[in-house]
Computed example of a mutant assay.
Amino acid sequence: MKLSRFRIERLNPLIKMKSFLLAFVLLALASSLASAFDPSPLQDFCVAVDDPLHGVFVNGKFCKDPKLAKADDFSFSVKKPGNTNNAVGSNVSAVNVQQIPGLNTLGISAVRIDYAPYGQNAPHTHPRATEILVVLEGTLLVGFVTSNPNNTLISKVLNKGDVFVFPIGLVHFQFNIGKTNAVAFAGLSSQNPGVITIANAVFGSDPAIDPGFLAKAFQLDKKVVKDLQNKFWMDSN
């Protein structure tokens, strides 16, 4: 049975509208899938400002003309061991966008970590990066703690050639359990991963956090908290 011309003319706008809606939905889905999550920030925070004249340039650096790029923009040396003569017995030599300008916008960086015998890279987090660590020399006890509510310790002893991953944002550590020096290299999934050393942040903040509050939070005597706050909190990172 053939449709009358009148009915066809009435249906055409509906068909066009349905086609438009379908195309719109598909476009929205594609856009949603393409931006499933925000890109990692390269700073601790970014306060929005309506006046661009008083704003600052963040999440990267200004770029030079590609024609002026040279090999030195993409290289750096960490051949020399870091100084481990400190309270924690370790030293982290960063290789990020500050050392290699060519890393800008590439979302990756690295570190060399030197450990004296029984030295440690104290519990810390990288708020903007996952870390993959390779042991070059020595024996390390490494681990990370999962988030609340379980706070499960995932830990392993690593030897030369072993690799371990620390997921983004989780508290992790390394401890040289050997009698000789140890060396490791790590890659991080940000040109500026950031680091928060737990003890330094809690007990070494400036200005200091109220000791009564910390005493209750950590179930410690207030005098113990004040003693901890009076220490010099050395950061090897």
Rank of each mutant, 00 (worst) to 15 (best):
K2W: 08
K2R: 14
K2C: 08
K2I: 10
K2L: 13
I8K: 14
E9V: 13
N12C: 10
N12H: 08
K16C: 07
S19E: 13
S19A: 13
F20D: 09
F20V: 06
F20S: 12
L22K: 15
S31G: 15
S31C: 15
L33I: 10
A36D: 05
F37T: 10
P39G: 01
P41R: 11
L42I: 03
Q43N: 12
F45Y: 10
G55C: 07
F57G: 08
C63H: 14
D65C: 04
D65R: 05
K67M: 07
K67C: 03
A69D: 14
A69C: 11
S75W: 07
V78D: 04
V78A: 09
P81Q: 05
N83A: 08
N83F: 04
N85R: 14
A87G: 03
G89H: 05
N91S: 15
S93K: 14
A94S: 14
V97I: 13
Q99P: 07
N104I: 04
I108Q: 04
S109M: 07
A110Y: 06
V111I: 12
V111Q: 04
R112C: 04
Y115I: 01
P117F: 03
Q120I: 13
N121S: 08
H126S: 00
R128L: 08
V134F: 13
V135I: 01
V135L: 02
L136G: 11
E137V: 11
G138M: 06
L141I: 01
L141K: 14
F144D: 00
S147T: 13
N150G: 02
N150R: 12
N150W: 09
N151C: 09
L153K: 07
S155I: 00
K160D: 02
D162M: 02
V163P: 02
V165T: 12
V165W: 02
V165M: 11
F166A: 00
P167I: 01
G169M: 06
L170N: 00
V171F: 05
V171P: 03
N176F: 09
G178K: 06
T180A: 15
T180Y: 11
G187C: 09
S189Q: 06
Q191H: 03
Q191C: 01
I198M: 08
N200K: 11
N200I: 00
N200W: 02
P211C: 01
P211H: 05
A215E: 02
Q219G: 03
L220Q: 06
K222H: 03
K223E: 11
V225P: 02
L228A: 09
F232E: 12
F232D: 13
N237M: 06
